[in-house]
Amino acid sequence: MTFYIVNLFVMMFYSTSIKMTKFKNRNALILFFLVTHFTIISGFRAVSVGTDTFNYNTIFSSTSLSSVEHIIQNSRFVGYELLMKLIGTFPNGNYQIFLLLIAFLTNFLFLVTIYRVCSDLIYQAGYLYYILYYFISTMNITRQMFAVSLCFCSIYYLIKKKYLKYFLLVLCAFLIHSTAVTAFIFPILYKVRWNYFKYALLVVMTILIGRGSSLLMGIFSTFVRGYSIYENAMIYQNEGNRIYLTLFLTGILFICIFFSLQLKNNFSQSVYFFQAVIIISVVMGIIFAKDSLIIRAQQYFEITIILYFPLFYRELKDVVVGDYKKYTSILRIAYIIFFVMLLIPFLMQLYSNYGGIIPYKTGI
Rank of each mutant, 00 (worst) to 15 (best):
T2G: 02
N7V: 08
V10L: 12
M11T: 00
Y14E: 02
T16I: 09
K22F: 12
F23K: 10
L29R: 07
L29P: 15
I30W: 02
F38H: 01
T39G: 02
I40C: 09
F44Q: 06
R45G: 07
V49G: 09
N55C: 10
F60A: 00
F60Q: 00
F60H: 02
S66N: 02
S67C: 03
I72M: 07
S75H: 02
I87F: 08
G88N: 13
F90S: 05
N94E: 11
Q96M: 08
Q96R: 14
Q96W: 03
I97C: 03
I97P: 07
I97K: 01
L100V: 04
A103S: 01
L105Y: 01
L111W: 01
V112A: 04
V112Y: 13
V112H: 12
T113D: 00
V117Q: 13
V117I: 15
Y123E: 10
Q124W: 03
Y127N: 10
I131D: 10
Y133I: 06
F135V: 01
F135I: 02
N140R: 08
T142I: 14
T142M: 15
R143V: 04
M145Q: 08
F146D: 01
S149H: 04
K160Q: 12
L175M: 11
L175P: 00
I176F: 00
S178D: 11
S178M: 09
A180C: 10
T182M: 07
A183G: 11
A183R: 00
F184A: 10
F186C: 08
I188G: 01
K191F: 05
K191I: 10
R193L: 14
R193W: 09
W194K: 00
Y196E: 08
Y199N: 03
L202V: 14
T206Y: 05
L208W: 11
I209Y: 14
S213D: 05
I219R: 14
I219E: 10
F223G: 05
G226T: 07
I235P: 09
Y236V: 12
N241V: 11
N241T: 06
Y244F: 10
L247A: 10
L249K: 11
T250M: 09
F254W: 01
I255L: 07
I255Q: 00
I255C: 05
C256H: 14
S260A: 15
L261P: 08
Q262N: 12
L263T: 04
K264L: 11
N265T: 12
N265I: 09
N266H: 15
F267R: 04
Q269L: 00
S270H: 12
S270L: 09
A276V: 04
I280D: 14
I287N: 05
D291R: 11
D291Q: 12
L293C: 09
I294V: 13
R296Y: 13
T304E: 12
I306S: 04
Y308I: 02
P310N: 03
Y313I: 12
E315L: 00
E315N: 06
K317P: 06
V319R: 13
V321K: 11
G322R: 14
G322L: 15
L331E: 02
I337A: 13
F338G: 04
V340C: 11
M348P: 05
Q349S: 12
Q349F: 07
Y351T: 06
G355S: 07
K361R: 15
G363C: 06
